[in-house]
Amino acid sequence: MASKIRRALLPAGTLIAFVLLWQAVCSAFEVGPYVLPAPWTIASYMADNAARLWDQLSFTLLLALKGIGLGVAIGIAAALLFHLIPGVRAALSPIIIITQNIPTIALGPLLIVWFGFGLAPKLILLALVCFFPVAWSMLAGLGQAAPHLREYMAMIGASRWEVLRRLELPASLPSFFTGLKLTATYGVTAAIVAEWLGSSEGIGHYIVLKSKGYDTTGVFAAIVCIVALALAFYGAAVLLERLVIRWRPGTSNAAAGKRRDAA
């Protein structure tokens, strides 16, 4: 526990030093708040507008949750489909790679043209961004189950379903969580972009309003909220990973342990 605190001390120290330096520069050179607001200015702005910011943030939070949920669900389904039916992967992967290469900035307006200003285009955008990291990393994980365990299951005559449930799915969990952590951060950014493109609520919309009004402090306040939200999502993914993966991944052979010999 003590060593954990010590390890966290250094990055926290750098962050505090950075904020202090920022504050000092703004005060010393009398930088105008419309160019670069000082941290203290941003903090007091956030305190004054707490209720409004919270409303916008919770809207974004809900949108991001829905989008990430949908994206993760599609990602898992796609990984399983590609894994179980190899032809599908070969057939569809070019299209999927293409969808990942279209900038969201370009795709967003098109989706609005096709699906209007409601929830649908935003969810589609989010799902498109969110499903890919989950699908691809989980697919890799499903294929990487230890060969000796695969051989054991074949030798005892386990069915395809048993191999999937007992071996491949658990073996893919570490990769799945790698994908989930990526998706958690991308998802928040994608939600902001979606709101920025066409919405009357949310932090993304708030940024548009504030930047159009040259309210730089407002923009910074929104950025702080977004970063906090992204960090919270990432933290939740890490926490979930710790709760689910309690075994030590990657070792099951005899060489694994000599610690607890038969007495």
Binding site: E151, Y152, R166, S252, A254
Partner: peptide
Amino acid sequence: QASLFPWL
């Protein structure tokens, strides 16, 4: 190899 499932 013992081939025990590490997650069970």
